[in-house]
């Protein structure tokens, strides 16, 4: 299994497609803190102007916000860019041996099917961990620069926990990508089916449970379900499957965002459950499916 993990890490570091999305991911996480800073500065300036003009006596809404506010947008980039990166890494990994027609050779060695699958999965998870570690360090450095001083240790710890929580979410989507890569007959379907699944989980499921519009779901703050009617019950049953919304709840709580409402423990269970369930289900993929010939 060690050889498979090593090979997976080597392949992922060489392949252009996961690296392309990784570059977008790193750029967006770096820029997101800067956007947060610009916005906060502008809002504070607006407040100063209105106060000076005698238009308001309300306190500055941003006066007591923690520096972790600047990491708020990272939540949405993990959901939009990070998960797609994980899917592409999963698909690329699963298709690699099928495309090169080396899968028969690998499975002719004393390697079990589960060692092959889990070796790849562990390799991808290590690659995702390294990616998240890197973006976490970048985010911490950028926020410290914007804040003008080192953050309190508890804030760094919160940032670390936030990026750590992203790992099961990304791993779950990487497994979905692996599923498609192992089972699809065509390369195009292998890429499109998990992306469609991602769109379903990110936009359609939350809408049914909360009546939130798809564009509103691009907001890092999850919307609570409409009170009354069937939405409370729908959200109770469907909500846990909206893992991206659950990730927003858990991350917001970790980052001390005062606007976040929702059940933290339910959100954590949902994210971990997603990762564990997908990891368990992939062990059921049959040997014949893994060896299936690609039509293109």
């Amino acid at each position: 299994m060690k050889a498979i993990i090593r090979q997976e890490l080597l392949a992922l570091s060489r392949e252009r497609l996961p690296l392309m999305l990784f570059t977008v991911f790193v750029s967006m996480i770096s820029v997101s803190s800067l956007i947060g800073f610009l916005t906060k500065t502008t809002v504070s300036d607006v407040w100063i102007r209105t106060r000076e003009a005698g238009l308001t006596s309300a306190p500055n809404p941003f006066a007591s916000l923690s520096p972790l506010y600047y990491a708020r947008n990272s939540i949405i980039y993990i959901i939009l860019v990070g998960t797609l990166m994980a899917i592409i890494a999963g698909v690329s990994s699963a298709l690699r041996d099928r495309k090169a027609a080396t899968i028969d050779l690998i499975l002719s060695r004393p390697t079990s099917r589960s060692a092959y699958i889990y070796g790849k999965l562990i390799g991808i998870t290590i690659w995702l961990s390294l990616s998240l570690f890197l973006v976490g360090v970048i985010a911490a450095v950028v926020i410290s620069i914007i804040f003008g001083a080192a953050l309190p240790a508890s804030d760094y710890a919160r940032l670390a926990v936030f990026f750590l929580l992203a790992l099961p979410l990304l791993s779950g989507f990487a497994v979905i990508g692996m599923f498609a890569g192992l089972l699809s007959k065509r390369e195009t379907s292998a890429l499109l089916l998990p992306i469609s699944f991602w769109a379903f989980v990110t936009f359609v499921i939350p809408q049914i449970g909360t009546a939130a519009r798809p564009v509103a779901l691009l907001n890092p703050v999850p919307l609570p379900p409409t009170s009354g009617g069937p939405f409370g019950a729908l959200n109770f049953f469907i909500g846990p499957f909206a893992v991206s919304e659950q990730f927003k709840v858990a991350s917001g709580k970790i980052l001390n965002d005062p606007d976040i409402s929702g059940d933290f423990s339910k959100a954590i269970i949902s994210i971990l459950g997603f990762a564990v369930l997908t990891s368990f289900l992939i062990s059921m993929v049959k040997r014949t499916s893994i060896r299936g010939v690609l039509s293109e």
Partner: peptide, 11 residues
């Protein structure tokens, strides 16, 4: 991303 950044920048 672009529309999301635009919305985020709206005070």
């Amino acid at each position: 991303v672009i529309p999301q950044v635009g919305d985020t920048m709206d005070p």
